[in-house]
Design a protein around this nucleic acid. Sequence first.
DNA 1: ATGTCGTAACGTTTACGA
Length: 260
Amino acid sequence: MKIASFNINGIKARLSALTDWLDEAQPDVALLQEIKTVDEGFPRETFEERGYNVETHGQKGFNGVAILSKLPLEDVTRGLPGDDEDDHARWIEATVVGARSSIRLCGLYLPNGNPAPGPKYDYKLAWMKRQKARAAELLATEEPFLMAGDYNVIPQDEDAKRPEAWAKDALALPQSRAAFRELLSMGFTEAFRTRVAGPGHYTFWDYQAGAWNRDDGIRIDHFLLSPQAADHLVDVGIDKDIRGREKPSDHVPVWVELDL
DNA sequence: ATGTCGTAACGTTTACGA
């Protein structure tokens, strides 16, 4: 089962780029972030025509997450638990039914947090604390699950071309990295880093200042696998070439292959 | 040199979020 994550930065502007990639990469499941539309504005027919089931958790103008799946989706829930005041659409869960077994999927768009310090950074850290709480609940089930999406966290200096440029940014501040490590130390496997070591692997290049042409990127889109999911990991990848196409997102797809 | 996008809104331009 090939499961991908892709921050598309606006479904209206990205429709052809997204469908071109889907047709080539053929993921069984795609977790999407920043759809930037309400549920009614999501062009679900475009994906249903390709055999995908579609579940969205949208919002007007910004944020918004979705799941496309060629396999059946069950028990869909929307929103990260733990704060009734939080109206940002950044979390969606569903159970996908594979040929031999099922897996719970959490698609996430973690808050950016800039400028830091400030209320937006406080929101980011509080959100990560809530994610930890939800992760603990799911770990207790001992069923396979994963949490994938745009984490807006650069885990280590090797995950940026110019780490010094990000040192005071909410994506790389020590508290952000510590919160990410706290998640990992609960028992998760960060899929990409179990397979690929060293610098030079990025998932985001800013639109500004020719970042793509200079390969001035950062790695902020991640798959965290529960122990029972990590047992089934077969392969990982970053579809880097997508960033060089017409009207690209500033992120590229990342994916895992699981033998489920 | 404050550099680019996407989205929304009393909109041919500005504000916000990234």
